[in-house]
Design a protein around this nucleic acid. Sequence first.
DNA 1: AATCGACGGTTACAATTGCAACCAATTCGA
DNA 2: TCGAATTGGTTGCAATTGTAACCGTCGATT
Lengths: 151, 151
Amino acid sequence: MPAPFDLESFLPYRLNRAAELISLSFAREYKQRYQITRPEWRTLAALGSVGRMTATQVGVHSNMHKTKVSRAVHALEQRRWLKRAEDDADRRIEHLELSVLGQKAYREIAALARAYQESLEQTLGQGAIGRIEAGLADVEQALLAGARKGH
Amino acid sequence: MPAPFDLESFLPYRLNRAAELISLSFAREYKQRYQITRPEWRTLAALGSVGRMTATQVGVHSNMHKTKVSRAVHALEQRRWLKRAEDDADRRIEHLELSVLGQKAYREIAALARAYQESLEQTLGQGAIGRIEAGLADVEQALLAGARKGH
DNA sequence: AATCGACGGTTACAATTGCAACCAATTCGA
DNA sequence: TCGAATTGGTTGCAATTGTAACCGTCGATT
Protein backbone atom coordinates (compact mmCIF):
# COMPACT_ATOMS: atom_id res chain seq x y z
CA MET A 1 0.00 0.00 0.00
CA PRO A 2 1.55 3.22 -1.15
CA ALA A 3 1.94 6.22 1.10
CA PRO A 4 -1.02 8.55 0.65
CA PHE A 5 -0.61 11.57 -1.58
CA ASP A 6 -1.94 14.82 -0.22
CA LEU A 7 -2.10 17.52 -2.83
CA GLU A 8 -2.37 20.17 -0.15
CA SER A 9 1.11 19.38 1.01
CA PHE A 10 2.68 19.07 -2.42
CA LEU A 11 5.09 21.94 -2.69
CA PRO A 12 4.87 22.77 -6.42
CA TYR A 13 1.10 22.96 -6.17
CA ARG A 14 1.20 25.08 -3.06
CA LEU A 15 3.84 27.42 -4.39
CA ASN A 16 1.95 27.96 -7.60
CA ARG A 17 -1.27 28.72 -5.89
CA ALA A 18 0.30 31.16 -3.49
CA ALA A 19 2.44 32.83 -6.16
CA GLU A 20 -0.49 33.33 -8.49
CA LEU A 21 -2.60 34.73 -5.71
CA ILE A 22 -0.08 37.22 -4.41
CA SER A 23 1.11 38.27 -7.86
CA LEU A 24 -2.34 39.12 -9.06
CA SER A 25 -3.05 40.80 -5.78
CA PHE A 26 -0.06 43.07 -6.11
CA ALA A 27 -0.48 43.55 -9.85
CA ARG A 28 -3.74 45.29 -9.11
CA GLU A 29 -1.68 48.00 -7.45
CA TYR A 30 0.31 48.97 -10.54
CA LYS A 31 -1.49 47.61 -13.62
CA GLN A 32 -4.02 50.41 -13.70
CA ARG A 33 -1.85 53.24 -12.51
CA TYR A 34 1.18 52.57 -14.66
CA GLN A 35 -0.18 50.60 -17.62
CA ILE A 36 2.59 48.10 -17.19
CA THR A 37 2.54 44.32 -17.56
CA ARG A 38 3.89 41.74 -15.17
CA PRO A 39 7.06 40.96 -17.19
CA GLU A 40 7.68 44.66 -17.61
CA TRP A 41 7.43 45.31 -13.91
CA ARG A 42 9.77 42.43 -13.17
CA THR A 43 12.32 43.73 -15.64
CA LEU A 44 12.00 47.25 -14.33
CA ALA A 45 12.39 45.98 -10.80
CA ALA A 46 15.43 43.89 -11.61
CA LEU A 47 17.20 46.77 -13.33
CA GLY A 48 16.16 49.28 -10.72
CA SER A 49 17.20 47.09 -7.85
CA VAL A 50 20.35 45.49 -9.15
CA GLY A 51 21.44 48.14 -11.63
CA ARG A 52 23.00 47.79 -15.07
CA MET A 53 22.53 44.27 -16.41
CA THR A 54 22.27 42.37 -19.66
CA ALA A 55 19.03 40.83 -20.85
CA THR A 56 20.31 37.36 -20.07
CA GLN A 57 21.14 38.39 -16.53
CA VAL A 58 17.67 39.83 -16.08
CA GLY A 59 16.25 36.51 -17.23
CA VAL A 60 18.35 34.51 -14.80
CA HIS A 61 17.63 36.85 -11.95
CA SER A 62 13.88 36.76 -12.37
CA ASN A 63 13.66 33.32 -13.96
CA MET A 64 11.92 34.59 -17.07
CA HIS A 65 12.15 33.10 -20.54
CA LYS A 66 14.49 35.06 -22.75
CA THR A 67 11.82 35.99 -25.26
CA LYS A 68 9.73 37.35 -22.44
CA VAL A 69 12.64 39.48 -21.33
CA SER A 70 13.35 40.58 -24.88
CA ARG A 71 9.81 41.82 -25.33
CA ALA A 72 9.64 43.49 -21.96
CA VAL A 73 12.88 45.30 -22.70
CA HIS A 74 11.54 46.45 -26.01
CA ALA A 75 8.37 47.76 -24.37
CA LEU A 76 10.29 49.61 -21.68
CA GLU A 77 12.54 51.09 -24.33
CA GLN A 78 9.55 52.38 -26.30
CA ARG A 79 8.38 54.05 -23.15
CA ARG A 80 11.84 55.59 -22.74
CA TRP A 81 12.26 54.02 -19.34
CA LEU A 82 15.34 52.10 -20.39
CA LYS A 83 18.50 52.61 -22.42
CA ARG A 84 20.72 50.07 -24.12
CA ALA A 85 24.47 50.40 -24.25
CA GLU A 86 26.84 48.27 -26.24
CA ASP A 87 29.70 46.40 -24.71
CA ASP A 88 33.21 47.49 -25.59
CA ALA A 89 34.62 44.03 -25.94
CA ASP A 90 31.70 41.84 -27.04
CA ARG A 91 29.31 43.30 -29.54
CA ARG A 92 26.63 40.70 -28.93
CA ILE A 93 26.04 42.01 -25.45
CA GLU A 94 23.74 44.87 -24.60
CA HIS A 95 23.94 46.48 -21.20
CA LEU A 96 20.57 47.63 -19.99
CA GLU A 97 20.03 50.58 -17.73
CA LEU A 98 17.04 52.57 -16.57
CA SER A 99 16.71 56.10 -17.86
CA VAL A 100 15.98 58.94 -15.48
CA LEU A 101 12.32 58.52 -16.31
CA GLY A 102 12.59 54.78 -15.69
CA GLN A 103 14.24 55.33 -12.35
CA LYS A 104 11.46 57.64 -11.36
CA ALA A 105 8.85 55.06 -12.29
CA TYR A 106 10.83 52.40 -10.50
CA ARG A 107 11.00 54.41 -7.31
CA GLU A 108 7.29 55.01 -7.40
CA ILE A 109 6.32 51.41 -7.96
CA ALA A 110 8.92 50.24 -5.50
CA ALA A 111 7.22 52.46 -2.92
CA LEU A 112 3.96 50.65 -3.66
CA ALA A 113 5.76 47.35 -3.27
CA ARG A 114 7.26 48.37 0.02
CA ALA A 115 3.91 49.48 1.33
CA TYR A 116 2.30 46.28 0.12
CA GLN A 117 4.81 44.08 1.86
CA GLU A 118 4.81 46.15 5.01
CA SER A 119 1.07 45.82 5.28
CA LEU A 120 1.36 42.09 4.75
CA GLU A 121 4.05 41.82 7.40
CA GLN A 122 1.78 43.70 9.78
CA THR A 123 -0.86 41.03 9.59
CA LEU A 124 1.53 38.09 9.43
CA GLY A 125 3.78 39.20 12.20
CA GLN A 126 7.38 40.29 12.27
CA GLY A 127 9.78 37.89 10.58
CA ALA A 128 7.18 35.63 9.02
CA ILE A 129 7.99 36.71 5.47
CA GLY A 130 11.70 36.42 6.10
CA ARG A 131 11.28 32.85 7.25
CA ILE A 132 9.37 31.93 4.11
CA GLU A 133 12.01 33.53 1.95
CA ALA A 134 14.77 31.68 3.71
CA GLY A 135 12.94 28.46 2.97
CA LEU A 136 12.49 29.42 -0.66
CA ALA A 137 16.17 30.18 -0.98
CA ASP A 138 16.97 26.67 0.20
CA VAL A 139 14.51 25.17 -2.25
CA GLU A 140 15.91 27.13 -5.16
CA GLN A 141 19.42 26.23 -4.24
CA ALA A 142 18.54 22.56 -4.06
CA LEU A 143 16.76 22.63 -7.42
CA LEU A 144 19.48 24.53 -9.21
CA ALA A 145 22.14 22.27 -7.80
CA GLY A 146 20.12 19.26 -8.88
CA ALA A 147 19.56 20.65 -12.36
CA ARG A 148 23.27 21.01 -12.93
CA LYS A 149 23.67 17.34 -12.19
CA GLY A 150 20.88 16.53 -14.61
CA HIS A 151 18.13 15.36 -12.28
CA MET B 1 14.67 59.31 2.55
CA PRO B 2 12.60 56.26 1.74
CA ALA B 3 13.44 52.83 3.07
CA PRO B 4 15.46 50.91 0.49
CA PHE B 5 13.65 48.43 -1.69
CA ASP B 6 15.29 45.08 -2.08
CA LEU B 7 13.73 43.02 -4.83
CA GLU B 8 15.29 39.88 -3.43
CA SER B 9 13.17 40.17 -0.35
CA PHE B 10 9.94 41.11 -2.10
CA LEU B 11 7.61 38.20 -1.54
CA PRO B 12 5.60 38.22 -4.80
CA TYR B 13 8.80 38.22 -6.81
CA ARG B 14 10.38 35.49 -4.75
CA LEU B 15 7.29 33.31 -4.79
CA ASN B 16 6.94 33.60 -8.52
CA ARG B 17 10.50 32.71 -9.18
CA ALA B 18 10.43 29.71 -6.89
CA ALA B 19 7.04 28.52 -8.14
CA GLU B 20 8.06 28.74 -11.76
CA LEU B 21 11.29 26.93 -11.08
CA ILE B 22 9.80 24.04 -9.15
CA SER B 23 6.79 23.66 -11.41
CA LEU B 24 8.86 23.34 -14.52
CA SER B 25 11.21 21.05 -12.70
CA PHE B 26 8.42 18.69 -11.74
CA ALA B 27 6.61 19.07 -15.06
CA ARG B 28 9.58 17.44 -16.70
CA GLU B 29 8.66 14.32 -14.79
CA TYR B 30 5.22 13.90 -16.33
CA LYS B 31 5.00 16.03 -19.48
CA GLN B 32 6.83 13.52 -21.60
CA ARG B 33 5.55 10.34 -20.05
CA TYR B 34 1.88 11.25 -19.87
CA GLN B 35 1.44 13.92 -22.54
CA ILE B 36 -0.40 16.05 -20.08
CA THR B 37 -0.32 19.81 -19.56
CA ARG B 38 0.09 21.71 -16.33
CA PRO B 39 -3.58 22.69 -15.95
CA GLU B 40 -4.58 19.12 -16.75
CA TRP B 41 -2.31 17.71 -14.10
CA ARG B 42 -3.61 20.18 -11.57
CA THR B 43 -7.18 19.28 -12.33
CA LEU B 44 -6.43 15.60 -12.26
CA ALA B 45 -4.64 16.03 -8.96
CA ALA B 46 -7.44 18.03 -7.42
CA LEU B 47 -10.07 15.47 -8.41
CA GLY B 48 -7.89 12.54 -7.47
CA SER B 49 -6.96 13.96 -4.13
CA VAL B 50 -10.18 15.57 -3.01
CA GLY B 51 -12.66 13.46 -4.94
CA ARG B 52 -15.88 14.45 -6.71
CA MET B 53 -16.04 18.20 -7.24
CA THR B 54 -17.55 20.77 -9.54
CA ALA B 55 -15.47 22.78 -11.99
CA THR B 56 -15.83 25.88 -9.87
CA GLN B 57 -14.55 24.06 -6.84
CA VAL B 58 -11.56 22.80 -8.77
CA GLY B 59 -10.83 26.38 -9.76
CA VAL B 60 -11.01 27.65 -6.21
CA HIS B 61 -8.95 24.80 -4.89
CA SER B 62 -6.11 25.23 -7.35
CA ASN B 63 -6.61 28.95 -7.96
CA MET B 64 -7.05 28.49 -11.69
CA HIS B 65 -9.14 30.69 -13.96
CA LYS B 66 -12.45 29.08 -14.82
CA THR B 67 -11.76 28.93 -18.54
CA LYS B 68 -8.52 27.14 -17.79
CA VAL B 69 -10.43 24.63 -15.74
CA SER B 70 -13.10 24.29 -18.37
CA ARG B 71 -10.53 23.44 -21.01
CA ALA B 72 -8.60 21.08 -18.80
CA VAL B 73 -11.80 19.25 -17.93
CA HIS B 74 -12.65 18.97 -21.59
CA ALA B 75 -9.22 17.54 -22.38
CA LEU B 76 -9.38 15.03 -19.56
CA GLU B 77 -12.84 14.01 -20.70
CA GLN B 78 -11.59 13.40 -24.25
CA ARG B 79 -8.95 11.16 -22.78
CA ARG B 80 -11.64 9.33 -20.86
CA TRP B 81 -9.95 10.09 -17.57
CA LEU B 82 -12.94 11.96 -16.21
CA LYS B 83 -16.71 11.70 -16.14
CA ARG B 84 -19.34 14.35 -15.66
CA ALA B 85 -22.51 13.78 -13.69
CA GLU B 86 -25.43 16.13 -13.47
CA ASP B 87 -26.77 17.39 -10.21
CA ASP B 88 -30.24 16.25 -9.20
CA ALA B 89 -31.37 19.60 -7.92
CA ASP B 90 -29.43 22.17 -9.95
CA ARG B 91 -28.97 21.55 -13.65
CA ARG B 92 -26.24 24.16 -14.01
CA ILE B 93 -23.88 22.13 -11.89
CA GLU B 94 -21.71 19.33 -13.17
CA HIS B 95 -20.07 16.98 -10.73
CA LEU B 96 -16.69 15.84 -11.94
CA GLU B 97 -15.16 12.52 -11.11
CA LEU B 98 -12.18 10.55 -12.32
CA SER B 99 -12.89 7.43 -14.32
CA VAL B 100 -11.14 4.18 -13.46
CA LEU B 101 -8.59 5.04 -16.12
CA GLY B 102 -8.20 8.51 -14.66
CA GLN B 103 -7.69 7.13 -11.19
CA LYS B 104 -5.00 4.87 -12.48
CA ALA B 105 -3.21 7.78 -14.15
CA TYR B 106 -3.63 9.84 -11.01
CA ARG B 107 -2.08 7.16 -8.84
CA GLU B 108 0.88 6.86 -11.16
CA ILE B 109 1.59 10.56 -11.38
CA ALA B 110 0.94 10.96 -7.67
CA ALA B 111 3.64 8.38 -7.11
CA LEU B 112 6.02 10.52 -9.15
CA ALA B 113 5.00 13.52 -7.11
CA ARG B 114 5.59 11.71 -3.87
CA ALA B 115 9.01 10.58 -5.00
CA TYR B 116 9.83 14.07 -6.16
CA GLN B 117 8.94 15.66 -2.89
CA GLU B 118 10.61 12.97 -0.82
CA SER B 119 13.84 13.50 -2.70
CA LEU B 120 13.55 17.22 -2.13
CA GLU B 121 12.88 16.72 1.54
CA GLN B 122 15.97 14.55 1.72
CA THR B 123 18.20 17.37 0.63
CA LEU B 124 16.37 20.11 2.52
CA GLY B 125 16.03 18.26 5.78
CA GLN B 126 13.05 16.94 7.65
CA GLY B 127 10.31 19.48 8.21
CA ALA B 128 11.68 22.19 5.95
CA ILE B 129 8.91 21.83 3.41
CA GLY B 130 6.26 21.73 6.07
CA ARG B 131 7.50 25.00 7.51
CA ILE B 132 7.33 26.71 4.13
CA GLU B 133 3.83 25.44 3.59
CA ALA B 134 2.70 26.66 6.97
CA GLY B 135 3.99 30.08 6.02
CA LEU B 136 2.21 29.95 2.68
CA ALA B 137 -1.02 29.04 4.36
CA ASP B 138 -0.77 32.14 6.51
CA VAL B 139 -0.07 34.31 3.50
CA GLU B 140 -2.99 32.91 1.58
CA GLN B 141 -5.28 33.36 4.49
CA ALA B 142 -4.19 36.96 4.92
CA LEU B 143 -4.67 37.74 1.25
CA LEU B 144 -8.04 36.09 0.97
CA ALA B 145 -9.27 37.80 4.11
CA GLY B 146 -8.00 41.11 2.74
CA ALA B 147 -9.66 40.56 -0.63
CA ARG B 148 -13.03 40.10 0.97
CA LYS B 149 -12.67 43.48 2.59
CA GLY B 150 -11.75 45.00 -0.74
CA HIS B 151 -8.06 45.82 -0.22
C1' DA C 1 -45.91 33.57 -12.12
C1' DA C 2 -43.16 37.20 -14.46
C1' DT C 3 -38.87 39.79 -14.02
C1' DC C 4 -34.28 40.63 -12.75
C1' DG C 5 -29.93 39.64 -11.01
C1' DA C 6 -26.69 36.09 -9.98
C1' DC C 7 -24.42 31.74 -10.95
C1' DG C 8 -22.11 27.54 -13.39
C1' DG C 9 -20.06 26.72 -17.35
C1' DT C 10 -18.60 27.41 -22.39
C1' DT C 11 -16.81 29.88 -26.29
C1' DA C 12 -15.14 33.68 -29.63
C1' DC C 13 -11.66 36.60 -29.99
C1' DA C 14 -7.56 39.11 -28.91
C1' DA C 15 -3.42 39.23 -26.31
C1' DT C 16 0.35 36.77 -24.26
C1' DT C 17 3.45 33.16 -24.35
C1' DG C 18 6.97 29.49 -25.64
C1' DC C 19 9.33 26.86 -29.11
C1' DA C 20 12.20 26.72 -32.77
C1' DA C 21 14.60 28.82 -36.14
C1' DC C 22 17.32 32.48 -37.01
C1' DC C 23 21.22 36.32 -37.21
C1' DA C 24 25.38 38.20 -35.80
C1' DA C 25 29.37 37.84 -32.98
C1' DT C 26 32.58 35.10 -30.34
C1' DT C 27 35.14 31.12 -28.76
C1' DC C 28 36.90 26.63 -29.22
C1' DG C 29 39.55 22.91 -31.39
C1' DA C 30 41.89 20.45 -34.95
C1' DT D 1 43.57 29.80 -39.02
C1' DC D 2 39.50 28.03 -40.58
C1' DG D 3 35.26 25.80 -39.59
C1' DA D 4 32.16 24.18 -36.01
C1' DA D 5 29.96 24.92 -31.89
C1' DT D 6 28.28 28.41 -28.57
C1' DT D 7 26.33 32.64 -27.02
C1' DG D 8 23.33 37.02 -26.73
C1' DG D 9 19.46 38.45 -28.56
C1' DT D 10 15.31 38.77 -31.89
C1' DT D 11 11.41 37.09 -34.53
C1' DG D 12 7.76 33.98 -36.95
C1' DC D 13 4.45 31.06 -35.81
C1' DA D 14 1.60 28.03 -33.27
C1' DA D 15 -0.22 27.10 -28.84
C1' DT D 16 -1.86 28.79 -24.47
C1' DT D 17 -4.21 32.15 -21.96
C1' DG D 18 -7.53 35.85 -20.20
C1' DT D 19 -11.43 38.98 -21.12
C1' DA D 20 -15.81 39.59 -22.20
C1' DA D 21 -19.81 38.11 -23.92
C1' DC D 22 -22.83 34.54 -23.95
C1' DC D 23 -26.37 30.45 -22.78
C1' DG D 24 -29.19 28.08 -19.75
C1' DT D 25 -30.65 27.72 -15.01
C1' DC D 26 -31.79 29.22 -10.49
C1' DG D 27 -33.39 32.37 -6.57
C1' DA D 28 -35.43 36.37 -4.92
C1' DT D 29 -38.65 39.99 -5.28
C1' DT D 30 -42.92 41.55 -6.75
